[in-house]
Amino acid sequence: MSVKAGPLAVAAKVLLTGMYGVPILWILLTSVKSSDDVFDPGRTFLFRPVTTAYVEALDGDLLRALLQSVTIATCATALVLVIAIPAAYGLARTRGWLPTAALGLLIVLQMMPQTATVIPLFQAFSGWRLLDTTAAVVLADAALLTPFATLLLRPFFRAVPPQIEEASSIDGAGVLRTFWSVVLPVARNGVATVGTLTFLLAWGEFLYAVNFYLTPGQYPLSALLAQQVSAFGINWPGLMALAVLTSIPILVVFSSTYRLLRDGLTVGAVK
């Protein structure tokens, strides 16, 4: 469908471009400024770019935080997919009061405020002696994201025609084999979309990390950033450099999966 933009639509687009472009531009500009130039209106665009903030930020602590982020996001995504894929398939293929109740429960869990779950989880993990371990953060993140992942995956499995499953079972394939080699490949777009989103969300999660790790030495990037931005006397160039470094993996994931996200995100909400 080709629609011509009227003057109002152009105005809206200018406004939106500014609203979403300026923050990104400012992160980048500020990250290469020296501290003296940050709040000098005369040097908004004309300044001598320096890499001080990056040089200062790039140390062993940062690499450790990066490694933590990668570990947490990867493990949480894998765990979520292993649990959510069969659950979503099961819920897409069955009817009755049990799946309906399970769906309702998932919706409720998906909506739970994270600040409400962090309190009892902290208590539970301290009882299970899991505090200050990466396992605690991975488990909590997975529990946070599994309901969402299952609900988003379900329509993708419902879109798989039941006929091809019947054909497969007539050929003598068992339920598991049919699921693995027939259904899953057909629904791979959905799995990729949900996997990407789970990774992005786990990458940005910081509340569990800040509370379950007892020392900042173990923080992932997002928690490090959250800790620095709420401190007094913020070092803006350093903070922005950290923000850029935290966002680069997001950019990589985003640019390779944008089409999937753009089309897959709306599956749950639009029919």
Binding site: T17, P23, Y258
Partner: peptide, 22 residues
């Protein structure tokens, strides 16, 4: 523009929050 907006949406809230605080 749509890609830019979805990218900003995909950024961690800490990043968006930091730049707006600034």
């Amino acid at each position: 523009l749509l890609a830019l907006m979805v990218f900003v949406w995909a950024l961690p809230p800490v990043v968006n929050g930091s730049v707006w605080k600034f």
